[in-house]
Amino acid sequence: MSEKVYFEIRNLHADVEGSPILKGVDLKINKGEIHAMMGPNGSGKSTLSNVIMGHPSYEVTEGEILFGGQNMVELAPEERAQSGLFLAFQYPVAVPGVTTAKFLKSAFDAVHGEQNIKAIAFLKELRANMKYLGVREEFINRYMNDGFSGGEKKRMEILQMLTLQPQMAIMDETDSGLDIDALKVVSKGVNKLVSPAFSLLVITHYERILNYIKPDHLHILMDGKIVFTGGSETVKKLEEKGYDWVREEYGQEVLAGREEASKV
């Protein structure tokens, strides 16, 4: 793996309950790049993000996920996070009885080591990030995602990302269900992290978010495979023409595969 290629997926195949969802995904992300991944319903987008993070319901049957010189497939989810990977969930999970502050401090300590930051400094930083994302201060003592609205949960995912400072993040449909103002705030948060040392994979259903988080490359996933890779100009094309041109270009194979997937 060259110095520049930071995150690489090679020939990734994955099953859920015995049925194959990912059928040979190849993807290279260089350090500092932003990639977008789009695709119709059932194409395997969420499966890909779950597999990258190591969800126990998905089984990798073939292939590798290389990050920082390690094959992530062999690591537990927490080890993947500790090596600098982050997933912003499409459906964040509530942890009743555990405050946002407690949750984030535990996560920070697990990723960066307990000695690295004092509680007071940590809280100061957390408050600053909350303010930046327009999250009300009371959320610091609310239980993680417990009774949060959809939009609040999504903001909380980005707050976690800002707190943990990963080197590589995957955003799984973070934009779904957000109004335009919330989308702007979330994007603002993500852009704060963007740097030559940070790589990002934005998985989305809609082009909208890509007006705020500008990708260097765009991939289209269909039936468990990346069928098209292009530059940022592709965003406009998709916006105007939808996925039809992709289907035309890649023929019946993709269409048939897609129908099959949508039945699942």
């Binding site: 126990p56 969930f89 999970v93 949750f103 996560a107």
Partner: peptide, 13 residues
Amino acid sequence: EEQLFYIKSRGID
């Protein structure tokens, strides 16, 4: 499992 995966994905064993 979902709850544990969520927490583990934040680096917590």
